[in-house]
Simulated scan of single mutants.
Amino acid sequence: MKTITTTADLAAFCAEAAKRDYVTVDTEFLRERTYYSKLCLIQLAYQDDTGDDAVLVDPLAGDLSLAPLYDLFRDEAVVKVFHAARQDLEIFYVDEEVIPKPLFDTQVAAMVCGFGEQVGYETLVRKIAKADLDKSSRFTDWSRRPLTDAQAKYALADVTYLRDIYEFLADQLRSSGREKWVKEELAVLEDPATYRADPADAWKRVKTRNNAARFLGIVKELAQFREQYAQDRNIPRTRVYKDDALVELASTKPQTEQDLGRSRLLLREARKGDIAAGILAAVKAGLAMPNGDLPKPDRRREKLQVNPAIADMLRVLLKAKAEGEGVAQKLIASSADLDSLAAGDRDVMALRGWRKEVFGADALRLCDGEIGLAVDGQKVIAVTL
């Protein structure tokens, strides 16, 4: 197995990969102690018989530039194949604002092809490549050098078996005519907005029971300060303060460092210095925020009156459609989608694109009383009323 540590060697490999239809990609990274992922290893492979078709790329080597790899990512003649690509793509976007295109995610494709929900790589290796993975190196420290033989073998397996998985799933999609389904699903992964963490929007991830506008205004300011502070220093946001402490601060509205000292949940190091000053400034800004600028919670779901009988019928219909199509239920519609449909909401993902073809159109007809459900042997079918 070859480890690439120079730009010249990476360029040579990428030049060969550019002659192929696809290249498989994976990464190993650490994120426990940082805000942004620390890229520790990149694995690449293409289909060839030379023995030089799979490599490890060491981004920690001081004289290595990833420019040749990013050029390959921009080459739309070569499909870039990942499994569960979200975190890998975020690394490359944060580093160079590049998103590999065209993109193929075998986890998404496997759900479309009937392998279940959020199917893992190990499962696909076992079912498609007919092999077993050695998982002993999964949680090792990938930043330490030199890598052990076990680590290198584990890392390469993440892209070598991926070739067989990709070819199998791509063939399945072509045969079933579902390539456009996967393309629709990958639109989110190909959207740069997916990887931008705007501090001004951080409050939307904080779960609270209190939806009072002023309270949410303070939550917004505290979340924005925390996110910006964590980004600037590249530390996890939980190292600044956790969500439960943030909600407590929004409730108690501390005005002084002495007030911060009374917090039950705030970390000791956050009760003084820059973090303490930031907290107090955020609380002050939240209290002073004009009424017109206060966050407005999405109350649409609170107003929805879910008809439980319709919701139950929709669940039966979804199960029948998913089994009939060989597609994971949750990929078609979430439980929240079904409740929304049963309450009359028509702005749901289940009514868009391929989901509407598979399930949404009949779901609407069921809600409108145009069709019913019947048992045909061991199957549930839709019947026109």
Score class of each variant (00 low, 15 high):
T3L: 10
T208G: 06
L314N: 05
H83M: 03
K2Y: 02
A150Y: 03
I332K: 06
A131V: 04
V247K: 03
D312F: 00
R163D: 06
D141F: 03
K204Q: 14
E370H: 11
D105E: 01
V78W: 01
D53Y: 05
V219Y: 00
D164R: 12
P295D: 00
M111K: 03
V159F: 13
P192F: 13
A202L: 06
A277D: 13
V316H: 06
I99G: 08
G372S: 08
V78P: 00
A84K: 01
V306Q: 00
K183P: 05
R20V: 02
R209I: 00
V316K: 15
D298I: 10
A311T: 00
N291G: 13
K303T: 07
I91H: 11
Q43V: 06
G353F: 00
I235M: 13
T34W: 00
A328T: 06
K130H: 14
T3I: 12
N291D: 14
A150K: 15
E90Q: 12
D52K: 15
A333Y: 08
A333M: 07
N307P: 04
F29S: 07
T50R: 10
T3Q: 09
P254A: 10
T24P: 12
G114W: 01
A77Q: 09
Q43H: 05
D132R: 10
R205K: 15
L317C: 09
I165D: 09
A343Q: 01
D134I: 07
T24V: 14
R315V: 03
G292E: 14
D63H: 12
M1Q: 01
A322F: 02
P68G: 04
E357T: 09
L124H: 14
L287I: 09
L72T: 11
L222Y: 04
C367G: 02
V78A: 01
E185I: 06
A202F: 02
V159H: 12
D134M: 13
I165E: 11
R365Y: 05
E269T: 14
T6D: 14
I275G: 02
A15F: 00
R163H: 04
A8W: 03
R20I: 00
L169A: 10
R178E: 08
A170D: 10
